[in-house]
Simulated assay, not measured.
Amino acid sequence: MTGVPVGPSERPVEVRCGRFFVRLGEPTRDGTRWLTEGKTVRVKCGVLTEVSF
């Protein structure tokens, strides 16, 4: 899922275990407008990981 929009921020997203760079953005006619700085998140296997911005 790297570099791919995954949907609304209030919904869970199922991903594989590992480290991910995440940030919030919204689509525009010219691409994406980033709403937050990005951060690296470590997703543990089989555990819900919540991220706050």
Rank of each mutant, 00 (worst) to 15 (best):
R29M: 09
D30V: 06
F20N: 00
V6D: 06
G3W: 04
T32M: 11
R11C: 05
C45N: 14
S9D: 07
F20K: 03
G31N: 09
S52K: 13
L35R: 09
E50H: 05
V41G: 01
R29H: 07
T28K: 02
V6M: 11
G7A: 12
P12S: 13
T40V: 12
C45W: 07
S52V: 12
K39E: 10
T36V: 02
V15E: 10
L24G: 07
T28D: 02
R23F: 03
S9C: 03
G38I: 03
R23L: 07
G31L: 05
R11Q: 15
R42L: 10
R33M: 05
R19I: 02
G46D: 15
G3S: 08
G25I: 00
L35D: 03
V51I: 10
F53L: 02
E14V: 15
T28H: 02
V43N: 00
E50P: 02
V13S: 01
C45I: 05
L35A: 05
R29E: 15
V6W: 01
G7E: 10
R11D: 14
V6Y: 01
T36M: 01
V43C: 03
C45R: 15
T49H: 08
K39T: 11
E50C: 10
R11A: 12
R11P: 00
V4C: 05
T49D: 10
F53R: 00
E26S: 04
F21Y: 11
V51L: 03
E10M: 05
G25W: 00
E26I: 09
G46R: 14
T36G: 02
S52C: 07
R19Y: 04
C45Y: 09
P12E: 13
T40Y: 06
G31D: 11
F21H: 09
L48H: 12
V41P: 01
T36Q: 02
F20P: 00
T40A: 02
D30A: 15
T49A: 14
T36N: 03
L48F: 07
T49S: 14
R29F: 08
P8D: 13
G7D: 11
V6R: 14
F20H: 12
T32L: 07
G38H: 01
T40E: 14
L35C: 04
R42E: 15
G25K: 00
L35E: 06
M1P: 09
M1R: 06
V43P: 00
T36R: 02
R19Q: 12
G3L: 06
S52Y: 10
V13H: 07
G46Q: 13
V41T: 05
P27D: 10
T28Q: 06
C45L: 10
T32N: 05
E37M: 00
G38F: 01
E14G: 06
T32P: 00
V47R: 15
V15H: 09
R29W: 09
S52A: 07
D30K: 13
T2L: 09
R23S: 03
S9T: 12
D30I: 00
R16Y: 06
C17W: 01
R23E: 08
E37C: 01
K44N: 14
V47F: 10
R19H: 05
V51S: 08
E10I: 08
R42Q: 14
R42G: 02
C45K: 15
V4S: 13
K44Y: 12
V47I: 15
E14T: 15
G38V: 02
V4A: 12
T28R: 07
G46H: 13
C17R: 14
